[in-house]
Design a protein around this nucleic acid. Structure first.
Lengths: 238, 238
DNA sequence: CAATGCAATCTTGTATACAATATAGCGCAC
DNA sequence: GTGCGCTATATTGTATACAAGATTGCATTG
């Protein structure tokens, strides 16, 4: 498995629990350290984390419930590979939920919240400059999570958290745009709308931001059209 | 624990897995056979289902991820007791998601789908007539799940499934209206809008239906006011 | 060379044993 | 009667052993 030793967990004071393992794996997945489809063997993770298979299995189940790992009975656990349909569904769900959180965030954000959001963008910019695309991707997702946190609706924030994790897999599989994932201009504009307590504008910006992200996946559907054309070309001689 | 012997699982050909146990418990919770706050002991469930604690723990973890069971470390698993805040959040999330599924269902429903939805109402009516409120409650929730299934957006349907399960707990704790949970008139009107392929109307009806349900919880906030008043009355003599 | 069959090995599923923590009950002091 | 301390017991957390299923590698056949 592609987990390198440099990614081995620190043996700190905190005990290794199913949650620490699940979080570590989730973090690694989010940063694209582990590719979709990768097998996660129980014994291997057990060795890596220094716990029994019992804890590992519980961690894998947690990740499976978040749909970022797929457990196939008798065959093992694998990083999920969302289908194109799932990809569309995930972004569609985000387009439904996140504009609302942006609106609420515009109503509820404190100056500290604004600072924190801006800090996120700065860190993301630093990561990109350093060529650390994985970290930039992670921070980009965290930005969205922070907006959801500011909105003070935990139930919806929890849903968004799962959707963002799944988005990371989707991006690994289907993203083909050259530019950075989330253009910082979009995030900046969003922060301004939130700071200005302009709920309408924040909602519109978040919606169009996500539609934009979604459209970057739509690009992947073009090869299907080319495929049909190819079938057409093969038919006359078939 | 309040699980009665009459609710003991059938020892059928299907093996008892974590999923069958989780589903059985979820079903029992949904029908209010088990009250919020009830302790679910591992050994007890292990006895009841005839499997080891390993399987039981996996089932409980599944239910914990659905937030209908709360696992407290070193203390055990309990049927969740959503706070009033959580109650509001859950219905707010439903108000955001389900109108969209209703709109999509109006676009996608087949005549068979309409028949099935109508069948749900009939069964619910039968259950109420027979005084089987638990079953009526379950079917009422299933109606909403069916609308979500018809909408063909699995990601959102999965979210709605969890929200409906949690709604069942919320209703057990906070519901005080004398009438049946979902008035069949609301469901009938919704079916008609869906059958008529009237997405706008279906969306509006679902929204107002959920707002209505949500408002039945709001009623529970009134005692808080009375509680404050009582404190005021006690203060002068305190 | 490719396909098939078989045995060995690996991995996952499950039960059980042991460790750690919490709870209940009893006796004693005030 | 109440509160505290202690012990026994119950329950949960975790590791380990065993069973079941899958995969791999090798030998044989066509």
């Amino acid at each position: 498995m592609a987990l390198s030793a440099s990614k081995k967990p620190q043996k700190a004071d905190a005990p290794i629990t199913k949650d620490t393992i699940a979080n570590a794996l989730s973090h690694a997945i989010h940063q694209h350290w582990i590719a979709p489809g990768t097998k996660l063997g129980e014994d291997e993770l057990s060795d890596i984390y220094g716990v029994s298979r019992t804890i590992v299995r519980a961690a894998l189940q947690t990740l499976a419930h978040q749909q970022i790992v797929e457990i196939r009975r008798n065959r093992g656990a694998f990083i999920a590979k969302p289908s194109l349909t799932e990809a569309h569904e995930v972004f569609e769900a985000r387009e439904l939920l996140e504009p609302r959180t942006a609106r609420s965030a515009a109503r509820l954000a404190t100056p500290q919240d604004i600072d924190l959001l801006e800090g996120h963008i700065a860190q993301e910019h630093d990561a990109l400059k350093a060529g650390n695309h994985g970290r930039a991707l992670f921070l980009s997702g965290q930005f969205h999570l922070e907006v959801a946190r500011i909105a003070q609706q935990q139930t919806i924030a929890d849903m968004i958290k799962v959707l963002i994790a799944r988005s990371s897999l989707i991006i690994a599989l289907y993203w083909r745009r050259e530019s950075a994932l989330c253009e910082s201009q979009a995030h900046h504009a969003l922060i301004k709308a939130i700071a200005d307590q302009d709920g309408d504008h924040a909602e519109d910006l978040m919606k169009s931001h996500l539609v934009d992200l979604h459209s970057a996946l739509n690009l992947r559907e073009q090869p299907a059209v080319q495929h049909d054309l190819r079938d057409l070309l093969l038919k006359p001689s078939g």
